[in-house]
Design a protein around this nucleic acid. Structure first.
Lengths: 217, 217
DNA sequence: CCTACCGATCGGTAGG
DNA sequence: CCTACCGATCGGTAGG
């Protein structure tokens, strides 16, 4: 079916600007309260515009939710993926990515902590298009992590006997754990614990000093 | 204030039984969709009773949510804490606890995966009494984990240089990571990855073979 | 981008 | 434990 409703294009530069403003607020709200609590009425009230005016930008609540996820994904790429591309492939880039992730959390890029932690937890046990979209995004993220690990292994900077998927899972689990504890208890020790666990894991896996000095922060 | 509404006691044996039936359904629903989506109307429809009849058992939505959390806590204790008390204090009990946790997930005690993973994620960035209750429960859980670690350390079964809070955080992060991936992707490899990461961590921390043989599963 | 609506559902109440 | 309600809010529509 050809849906001009779900993939609504902005009709003007001004419309696109308004749409972006809406989505920036939506991303912040959803990172704290989830995508289900992101109601059109509350969002419109925050933006001091009418429900129907806001609604017209998206066409359905689900389209608003999808656009919110895509906006958060853009921010995630800009904050975490893109800066690390300046680093050499392998251990250096992997380390930069981990640092970027902790920085992203400490700087509170999203008010409610990692947007994707909130959203993927919200839909992890509920079928539907939002589950599928988030599961696909998270799978890509873990694949990307595993790819960086394999790069480091191919360069002899990381022991090859550890399965890349296994290590990617561990790294991701420490990110999620740090985000969870930091948000729930407001205790920054969780970030320090995750950093230390990661650096110890990396140290053990580093081979023959090929990891750049101080790389395992 | 003396609140006979929030701490409503069942007026009869039959009333207590109905209340328990309601809460069992509530716990399953909330583990999948969260405590906010646990609406009185949906719960009443599932139980084929009237909204107001169900409502009368609790007095407010928040009281229903609190009772649901306490019910899930009971199940958690029965499934994970209590069985491990049969094991000797120290590494043995710590290991039994980890095994019990993975078993609890694999047996899908809660349909949506770990109830407390869902609930604590839902309220981690939102102030209010439910946040505070869940944060307190999770703090107790991590304290309990850290206590088991300290017991093992005091017995010379686990190296003492690792901070108990640090290791408890790591163990919990692997539990949360396994639950997250298993629920989101339905991929049991996540459980295997978490088990392996844990057993490797324990192996490295075991001293002088004092850890019972095969204890680090 | 707005006002003015719609039916459905929310948490909760009255009264039995 | 029920029927019969209440005002508020939900996602969404009509028409401009």
């Amino acid at each position: 079916m050809i849906s001009s409703v779900k993939n609504r294009a902005p009709r003007s530069v001004r419309g696109a600007h308004t749409r972006q403003s809406i989505l920036q607020v939506a991303v912040q709200l959803a990172s704290q309260e989830g995508l289900e609590q992101l109601t059109i009425g509350r969002l419109a009230a925050k933006l001091e515009m009418s429900k129907s005016g806001l609604f017209a930008h998206f066409g359905s609540k689900e389209a608003l939710q999808v656009a919110t996820i895509e906006t958060a994904a853009q921010t995630f790429v800009d904050e975490i993926i893109r800066p690390t591309l300046a680093h050499a492939k392998g251990a250096s880039r992997l380390q930069a990515l981990c640092d970027a992730w902790f920085s992203y959390m400490e700087r509170k890029v999203f008010e409610g902590g990692c947007f994707f932690a909130t959203a993927s937890n919200e839909y992890k046990s509920r079928p539907g298009p939002l589950h599928d979209l988030l599961a696909a995004k998270m799978k890509n993220w873990l694949r990307y992590l595993a790819g960086l690990i394999q790069d480091a292994q191919a360069r002899g900077q990381l022991q090859a006997e550890v399965e890349a998927d296994q290590l990617a899972f561990e790294i991701h689990a420490l990110f999620m754990g740090a985000n969870w504890a930091y948000q729930l208890h407001g205790d920054a020790r969780a970030i320090a614990w995750a950093r230390r666990a990661l650096s110890q894991r990396f140290e053990r896996l580093a081979q023959r000093g090929l990891l750049p000095p101080g790389a395992a922060v």
